[in-house]
């Protein structure tokens, strides 16, 4: 059963002209957001993207852009309070439920 999150919020973007169709982005995507059509990658299920950034990080051609970060409310609250980027408090000994 595939549970979906909010619609039309994801920041994932693909610059087709830079794509060489190597497919590493498809390889690393945990939610089957991307697929190869011909020799180019396409975004086929944008709403399933969790903005982890794996595709962008592994694209050697800079064809993918996404504002990546943790989809974690507790991390965002802590980030707001400390004035930092949302980051899991887990490693800092915080007991927030994230990860």
């Amino acid at each position: 059963m595939k549970t979906k999150y909010l619609k039309n919020v994801v920041t994932l973007q693909l610059q087709e002209e830079k794509c060489t169709g190597c497919g590493i982005c498809i390889e690393v995507c945990p939610h089957n957001v991307l697929a190869l059509t011909g020799n180019k990658v396409r975004i086929i299920d944008k709403d399933s993207c969790m903005e982890c950034g794996a595709c962008a990080k592994n694209c050697a051609f800079g064809a993918i852009g996404v504002r990546s970060g943790v989809g974690c409310a507790a991390a965002i609250i802590i980030g707001k309070m400390l004035g930092t980027e949302p980051s899991c408090g887990c490693s800092d000994g915080g007991s927030s439920g994230c990860c």
Partner: peptide, 12 residues
């Protein structure tokens, strides 16, 4: 949301 495996930062 932080424990789940499908929420995006933008969505949260």
């Amino acid at each position: 949301t932080g424990a789940s495996t499908y929420t995006s930062l933008s969505g949260v």
